[in-house]
Design a protein around this nucleic acid. Structure first.
Length: 138
RNA sequence: ACAGCAAUUCGUUCUGUCGCUAUAUUAAUUGUUUGAUAUAGAGGAAAGUCCGGACAACAUAGAGCAUCAUACUUCCUAACGGGAAGGACUUGUGAAAACAAGGACAGAUAGUGCCACAGAAAAUAACCGCCUUGAAAAAGGUAAGGGUGAAAACGCGAGGUAAGAGCUCACGUGCAACAUAGGCGACUGUGUUGUAAGGCAAACCUUAUGAGUUGAAAGACCAUGUAAACUGAGGAUUGAGGGCUGCUCGUCCGAUCUCAGAGGGUGGGUCGAUAGAGGUGUUUAGUGAUAAACAUCCCAGAUAAAUGACAGAAAUAUUGAUUCCAAUAUACAGAAUCCGGCUUAUAGAAUUGCUGUUUUU
């Protein structure tokens, strides 16, 4: 697998997925983001992400597009961190990045923050969480 | 040369690396897909969603009322509340001729209503004044003069009269009708006759013309699903109920019906949907909007939503420096069924025209 691609498979596309994330997901805060995540059992490692920039803080579509593209680009360049560390785990990981800052970040700053955020995510023990979820459901 | 106004056009460019979406070709794969190569990939406003159409649904003719929109003329257009050319009006400049700008430019003699303050009175109006009658109080006549106001008896002169008054007349002004000349027409010129107490329709309203409603989340097909399924109630041509226009009528459907309830499932794909009232160029017709003919081109198609990021160079502007340097900035803004307009936002650049100032000849 190539490292720096970002195709449609890795996008969140279904409306159900979004609803599920908002209903059941847990969140990590790392300024300027709020990251909501949801773990599901699966055959292989699969990571899907969505990006959301609220209309309240950025009223112009141009600015929202710009921020989305920056986040997507920085994720694309940093996502190998996630894949390398979670290689062996058989889970489906849904991530939703919500941009909460009111100012625009430059590429360099964004890159740095995304890097830190991904490291935070890696530190979580997803397998354990999955087990706990199963127990709760039962 | 500079500044201002108006109109039109454009609205950063190039290279490299890494990505995204679509299409075509090709290789692999049962297939879903994956790889490689090539090509294409936001705007003048894509925006506001304000008008007008195309398109689709509402089984199917229609009528009236209500409601909404429009309102000088002719033309353009698929259509328009848009545009072009013109007319009258208002405003500005000007001695005039003329030039420029502006817009909800039908009706106030169908009716109702309103007209702040001031003023006697704001629409069948007499306060002061003037005149007549009368002893007086008062009554009557009078719109010449005064005063108020945004607006008050058409202006001015003569006749006339008790005083006055378009009461009469001359010269003008406005309005209406008719005739006549010009113009397709709005309208303009001239003449005759009549008439003379305001304004507001961006108050209701009247007249004329137009509009069936909804809106791509329209709609069609495929897949999934026990899906024309279950329970209860209603109802028979003497008409329940329904047919996506607010009401009335008409008309049509009408048990494979309607209403209510409980519970379950889907919420995915393909089409619609990108070759069009298309673009570009030339010629012809027309004052012009625009139309016709010929040639040529194919030019975004996403769906939690592609069209990007980084690095370097160039261009332009500003600031600092002072001689080829440095720093900063590069507007408004992102397609979502598609077209034609309107409106609003917009750094900067170019062209043309007009006006002003300065310099030179």
């Amino acid at each position: 697998m190539k490292l720096f691609t970002f195709s449609k498979k890795e996008h969140l596309c279904k409306r159900n997925d979004f609803q599920n994330i908002f209903l059941k997901g847990k969140s990590i805060h790392h300024f300027p983001f709020r990251c909501v995540y949801l773990v599901r059992p699966a055959d292989k490692l699969q990571i899907k992400i969505g990006i959301s920039v609220p209309k309240k803080t950025f009223k112009l579509a141009v600015k929202r597009n710009r921020i989305k593209r920056l986040i997507r680009e920085t994720y694309r360049l940093n996502k190998h961190l996630l894949y390398e560390s979670l290689q062996d785990q058989t889970i489906e990981l849904l991530l939703l990045f919500i941009y909460t800052c009111k100012n625009e970040y430059t590429f360099k700053e964004m890159n740095k923050q995304i890097n830190l955020l991904l490291n935070k995510i890696i530190a979580k023990d997803f397998v354990k969480q999955l087990k706990n979820q199963h127990i709760h459901e039962k």
